[in-house]
């Protein structure tokens, strides 16, 4: 079997006012495990979890991870029914996530994920 990295490094960008929920910081660097619990629990993450009940790290997990570890306020403006609130655009390496399988997209080492709120001001 091919050996895969146990963690993946990601670059996260927030824009359009989304950054206000994340300590007003637009750019973040993260390192998260390459496999994560299927229930998206972000507590007690292990670099080498049991293979049962885990999945490759996807965007849905990332959204939960951001909520639990980086979000500073008003979680209801970020997450709704297990995904981002309608009106938040997500780009995966500058491509609309709707072309990449949305929440099911499996994150790769070095990916850049952008979250932009469309809900602020005109």
């Amino acid at each position: 079997m091919m050996s895969s990295p146990k963690t993946i490094a990601l670059k996260i960008e927030f824009g359009g006012g989304m950054e206000l929920l994340f300590a007003n910081q637009r750019s973040h660097k993260l390192s998260i495990p390459a496999r994560v619990p299927v229930d998206n629990s972000t507590k007690e993450l292990q670099a080498e979890p049991d293979s049962s009940n885990t999945k490759p790290t996807d965007i849905v997990f990332l959204i939960h991870y951001l909520r639990d570890h980086l979000l500073k306020e008003r979680e209801e403006l970020f997450i709704e029914n297990g995904t981002v609130r309608p009106g938040i655009l997500v780009l995966i390496n500058d491509t609309d996530w709707e072309l990449e399988g949305e929440g099911d997209y499996k994150l790769q080492d070095g990916d850049e994920i952008v979250f932009i709120s469309t809900l602020h001001g005109g």
Partner: peptide, 9 residues
């Protein structure tokens, strides 16, 4: 709106 925000981005 989505396209306006994408355009700006």
């Amino acid at each position: 709106e989505k396209e306006i925000v994408m355009y700006a981005y």
